[in-house]
């Protein structure tokens, strides 16, 4: 059982790394979900996997009998799942906003915060650098969405 889970963790991590190497940030997020589950399984496995041995403490004893699964990693995993869920929800909304604002999910094209120097012709008279230097194709869409973003 433990060997099988270890193989599963490896498989999940491999798929996750494959997805995370994609340029598309949405695929990256899916990879992140897989690898965070792999990490959760690592912790889960750290507390042993046993069948048919409930971690119950006999009356009069202070510790459960040897050989049962450790309950602490399971509690840790619960915490990690909750936190991971919150972060994933945030990241997903961020991707949604990015698609609406920047008009792309390709990380190569997200150069708004770091414009390429060869595209950055500094216009001395212009006071609004962000709009003038916008290398993105969807400038008007970005402008309208900026307004809706402020209302969020």
């Amino acid at each position: 059982m433990e060997e099988l889970t270890a193989v599963l963790i490896g498989l999940l991590t491999a798929c996750a790394v494959y997805l995370m190497l994609a340029r598309n940030v949405l695929r990256f997020i899916f990879g992140l979900v897989l690898i965070s589950n792999a990490a959760n399984l690592v912790i889960f496995l750290g507390g042993r996997l046993t069948a048919g041995a409930p971690p119950l403490i006999e009356s009069g004893q202070t510790a459960p009998p040897p050989g049962v699964a450790n309950a602490l990693p399971q509690a840790l995993v619960l915490t990690a799942i909750v936190i991971g869920f919150g972060l994933f929800a945030f990241a997903l909304i961020l991707m949604f906003r990015a698609h609406a604002t920047l008009g792309t999910l390709d990380s190569e094209e997200m150069r708004l915060a770091e414009p390429r120097p060869d595209l950055r012709a500094v216009d001395e008279a212009d006071a609004m650098p962000a709009d003038a230097e916008d290398p993105m194709p969807a400038t008007d869409e970005a402008a309208t969405d900026e307004a809706s973003g402020a209302a969020r």
Binding site: V25, M95, R97, A98, T101, M110, R111, G149
Partner: peptide, 10 residues
């Protein structure tokens, strides 16, 4: 929510 912020945040 300015576009550069979203870009940097990703």
């Amino acid at each position: 929510g300015r576009p550069e912020q979203i870009d940097g945040a990703i």
